[in-house]
Write a protein that binds this DNA or RNA. Structure first.
Lengths: 209, 209, 209, 209
DNA sequence: AGGTAATCGAGACGGTACGTCCAGTCTTTGT
DNA sequence: ACAAAGACTGGACGTACCGTCTCGATTACCT
């Protein structure tokens, strides 16, 4: 049994050109107005070649944003000892990235793509949640070793969800907002604020009835 | 002075028929494949009539989802005295609504619409954030009067953002996830130092009378 | 029962523009390279409009050549009393028309269209044979009243066939060729040549064996 | 001097397979829908191999129809002594061939090819006219030695033209039509002054010994 | 025997055109 | 004046072929 490929080998260079053209088109026109015709023309490729690599608009966008350009590479949360500050810095890095118009356009586009395709949605989740959850858990493990593991997921998705929501609705993630977000996730809405070490005995003030 | 309009009066019935047709089309095909031609045909209306009411696809979708069908009417957070349970119940109601395929499709569509139109994004934000933030603050005000004011927004958007994120990426909001989310937002990731998942061990002071 | 049309009335002006653009494209590029895209663009029309009028390339070409531009309007054979000369003049008029490059291109195109579509072939036959046969029979009726009626068809198609064949194979219809053709059809290959009046007692010279 | 070619020898078998595939495709889909891709696939050949042999669609079709399958090999006109009957028989043989659907499709295709390519037109003319003219002149030379020399060409093209015209426009060459055609070409339209159609009354001097 | 070179099937490549669908506008008739 | 019907321009869709260009694998000739 021969595993050798027959025919001309597919050109990686063309694939990259297509992704770059897609990135530019997305930044310029957004997801809905995205045109395969234009992308192919801008990449100096035939339309068929684009379709050979990516079967649909959403697949192309997913590849472009998730595995190519656009989404923040998995940044580890810094570990200076001060969790709150570390988290805050990490989130601010994320916010700064989202504040760039081009990145914002790309991620909004991948949002729209995920809204339309189950497959893209799954890839989006795998990429984004895994990355941020890993980053968070790695940092929190030694800061709050007693925390339930499920919390990491919830906290990660609360953070990512809030950031993406702000991006979607065009509300800037102000420093104040980031502060509140970190506080909420670290200590809870009713928590004692200001303390950044682990093991705080958060008391639930609600007396109920 | 005569306030009466000349000619035939614009039919409110037609407008409703258009919105209903839009809802059905959205549920059936999603935002991207939405076709004004089909909507008009399904509503028994002329295309011009649709354009007379709504200038663009995104405006139509926004109207349909936000002010018409699709988005949950502002549900107040119940107040039984037990905040955690109240919040949990409220969130579960939201989750149940999102779990219905038709609602999910509609909200995903409005997400895509918001990603494309600044105007829709603003309406989306106004509608969703205002509603949930109001609901939350109203409940938390007497539960934790000492909480910092910014927290309500952050907490509301963390909750809503996480829920919408789960909807977007097609991950079901499991009871465990809701538990963790409520815990995180209420007490912070380090708040409840219970170790296991089911929340039974989690020290919840609320006696639920 | 109302027979009235609803909606915008179809524009004859556009139809004419399409036919004219088709004529120009045919003359410029020939049948095979004919492009509906180019035709529509040249006519300032949408592609859909072209397809609304004509369902296929061959139908468009048939309409253009047969009922529009290109094919000689039914010219009656002159009647000066001298059949041979009349016929010769009539044929020469036909030849002159075919000698024009644009006409040649158009008729070659309709030939190709007829080769591909049964429907176009029928229209081609109806138009061309009927016209030439009528022209011929009208003239021959008083010149050779004794001729069998079937002969007129055969003669007409022999003439038309020979002319179209010459056009197809790019051989000019020289004066000598036209002379021979008229002689053959009028008097037969063995006939007495030179006489141009009617009622000649053509003798069949073939002695056989 | 070495005339030997280096490298692998071109496979005549492949060339034949290509021509046969072309013939089948032509019969099945016609000239316009002809696809080199399909031909190559059907012949089990690479596209490049097809192009190595034939530079264009029209060249391939010409080769296929003229020098390969499709066109009648040059049939000599029989010589039994009775010209009229000989000619009629010869023409009937031609008509029978054209009546076969596959042959008809092939010749119609070559017609379309000739309409598009000057080169194919020339080859078509050379092949068809030369063959039929030679056949005719050979037979007529001893039947009507006094006929003008130009007549043979005109007569041949009148016959061939009429037959091809009938083929093109999908009109069957009925026995009556063939009779009339032979009569016209042999004796002229006014030649036989019989009045009725069946040709029985037509005074035919040839005793048919 | 070991290059050297042309050919083979296969199939990716940049393009062009296809025929369909839809957006958004305009026109016509009916109410 | 509004409504339905639907034709209009324009443009993108996804597919099919075109003719060219690599590929690895065969053949053949020529040292």
């Amino acid at each position: 049994m021969s595993d050798t490929r027959r025919g001309r080998t597919r050109s990686e260079a063309v694939r990259r050109a297509v992704l770059e053209a897609t990135r530019d088109e997305l930044a310029a026109h957004g997801y809905d107005k995205l045109s395969i015709d234009r992308i192919a023309a801008a990449a100096g490729a035939g339309k068929q070649t684009v379709y050979r690599w990516y079967p649909s608009k959403s697949a192309l966008v997913a590849e472009c944003v998730l595995d190519g350009y656009g989404f923040p590479a998995t940044t580890p949360v810094p570990n200076t000892g001060a969790v709150r500050r570390d988290l805050r810095d990490w989130l601010e890095g994320f916010a700064d990235h989202l504040a760039e118009p081009q990145s914002a356009a790309l991620i909004r586009a991948s949002t729209a793509a995920a809204a339309e395709s189950d497959d893209v949605a799954r890839r989006f989740y795998d990429h984004v949640t895994a990355a941020s959850e890993d980053a968070l858990t790695a940092r929190l493990r030694d800061a709050a070793p007693t925390a339930r593991p499920a919390s990491a997921t919830a906290a990660a998705e609360a953070l990512v969800g809030a950031m993406l929501y702000r991006l979607l609705v065009r509300q800037p993630a102000t420093p104040e907002f980031l502060d509140s977000l970190v506080d909420t996730v670290l200590s809870g809405i009713q928590g004692t604020n200001g303390t950044d070490s682990a093991g705080t005995q958060a008391r639930d003030l609600t007396p109920d009835c």
